[in-house]
Design a protein around this nucleic acid. Structure first.
Lengths: 332, 332
DNA sequence: CTGAAAGCGCTTACAG
DNA sequence: CTGAAAGCGCTTACAG
């Protein structure tokens, strides 16, 4: 159906090696010949078959982006960052949503390696990357927004401990004690880091660490709302809350308002991520910003460097830990 | 590096045709032989090379999704819909952000056809699909959220006229007249349809159509805010506004509040799209909901049907126009 | 049930 | 400057 190199060769009456050379701007083709070939290619609406080329060059110029859910407001910017950077380098990106399912993550990785992507960027579902190793032997990968990876892998992430510290410190210094922590799943590595920052700040400022002020659920907005109400109902009454992420934090604000608490006077709230609508005047959430778009870009930069190397295995891991940034708005 | 069919053939001492058959569950391989092949494949950590297979079968099981910007809250759900549906059918999806640039859109389409995607789902930058035609001859495409395509193409979209009508009608019936219209770019086909619905409703309810109440800018939140303030400053004082999309509508609300208008009493606002945070209590935007996720799913369903056909050209176009749904919240 | 051969659309030494 | 040939990793008639 589509025109091939052979069609052009036949018409122009040269070998298809010559056509290939002309099309790829290789030196050593008579200008006259090259011109005729290019014209014919254009006339036939010729599109090089990247699949065929990929087979011989063993490079597909495609990478895979494996994330939990593009619908979660944290990821679109990351995705945009990787797509932009990839595109600039001539790479395409496969988008895969694992829906936080380990199985689906595994299947995607298998599928992508079958499609011979040149590399993978993964925001893993959970922290056990062990099962993945088998599939990942042959392809370079850089992880994003997690540090819980095996010793020889690359990643780009943020300093979660410091972020947690900054959030908590703000609350303490503005007199919003006791300060509570509401987080997602307890065994999440990310959560543990942010929690560590929280505890560290409490210690540094001589505040007691009271487990009643620390709750784990999931990362949904409703959960934040439910938890703060429950807390207050139980007589545990924080003056400040650090929500492990913005969705949770927004939920906390909403729940607090429902039971008549004024933000930030009765309850100050700080989140984490700085998702797009955190900055809306109606929300105006004080939060720890992550450079999401840049994380995406950096991830592909690191990945691309590895793709260039023939011996992927020996390439030194590269780990980028970005700085969190406290964005002060009205909720704290 | 990676094990191939030949490696297996050599070790098991059969031809590689047999290995291929065994691996693909073709009938006519002695169970004993098949077993040995499968075992060896597993031992070698064999991953079939989808690129090579794609070359011979002329099917890559990949599709391209070309949208303006995944960071725009309308698209993540659409993308998730197409990704879910594609994945269920064994297809992978390339994500491409055109950033509303016609050039970039064109380049992506060229790139994707080079990669021999089996099909394309496009939310086009603008309505002139003419330039695209050249690249799109050989690959099936279904458009999403636009009706402005050439006569023989497929699309899935929403009834924008009806949506505009519903929005305006609500405003009129709740006494919020005069009702203004604030939209993005005037030459956008989508805008024109929604505007048509607006005008139709005004006519049906015997309201004057006054051009001073109709403004065009872009689709940004800030624009909505600026426009409503400007309108009021000019002495044009609507009681209700239909914002062509939610971002605009939210901006309108914010701008209105800034100049002391109470929502919805002084000014009632209805948007279009029902993006995720329209439902947040702080926003509580009345809006015309689009079934975004389903639009994505339907688009791949239609696409997949076409991909199955050998003669793509003769396959009848399929056009799906979904129903808009008025979601009543607090802003109107 | 299995093998030899051709071919998918390209690239790349190797000759000339 | 150009061509003949081999090969990338597979699948698929065609024989046997």
């Amino acid at each position: 159906m589509d025109a091939t190199i052979k069609d052009i060769a036949r018409i122009v009456k040269v070998s298809y090696a010559t056509v290939s050379r002309a099309l790829n701007n290789k030196h050593g083709v008579k200008p006259e010949t090259r011109k005729r070939i290019l014209e014919e290619a254009h006339r036939l609406n010729y599109r090089p078959n990247a699949i065929a080329r990929g087979l011989v060059k063993k490079q597909t110029h495609s990478i895979g982006l494996v994330i939990p859910d593009i619908t979660n407001p944290f990821y679109p910017e990351v995705a945009r960052g990787v797509e932009d950077a990839a595109q600039e380098a001539g790479f395409s990106v496969f988008l895969c949503n694992t829906n936080w399912e380990r199985d689906r993550e595994l299947r995607y990785i298998e599928l992508l390696t079958s499609k011979r992507v040149d590399g993978l960027i993964i925001a893993p579902v959970s922290e056990t990357t062990e099962t993945l190793q088998r599939f990942l032997r042959s392809v370079p990968v850089v992880y994003v927004s997690t540090t819980a990876v095996s010793a020889h892998e690359s990643y780009v992430t943020i300093d979660n401990v410091k972020g947690g510290y900054l959030a908590t410190e703000l609350l303490i210094r503005t007199g919003k004690t006791p300060v509570a922590f509401i987080g997602s799943e307890e065994d999440s590595h990310t959560l543990q880091e942010r929690l560590e920052g929280y505890k560290q700040a409490l210690k540094d400022y001589h505040q007691p660490v009271d487990e009643r002020y620390v709750r784990f659920g999931d990362f949904k907005r409703e959960t934040g709302s439910r938890f703060i109400k429950k807390m207050v109902l139980e007589g545990v009454k924080p003056k400040g809350v650090f929500g492990e992420n913005d969705l949770l934090a927004i939920g906390i604000i909403q729940g607090a308002k429902e039971i008549g608490l004024a933000i930030p006077d009765d309850l100050a709230v700080v989140g984490f991520d700085d998702i797009p609508f955190a900055s809306f005047p109606e929300i105006s959430l004080t939060t720890i910003a992550q450079p999401k778009y840049e994380m995406g870009r950096y991830a592909v930069e690191i990945l691309l460097k590895r793709i260039g190397m023939e011996d992927t295995g020996s390439f030194p891991r590269q780990r980028l830990i970005l700085e969190p940034n406290l964005v002060r708005r009205k909720s704290a």
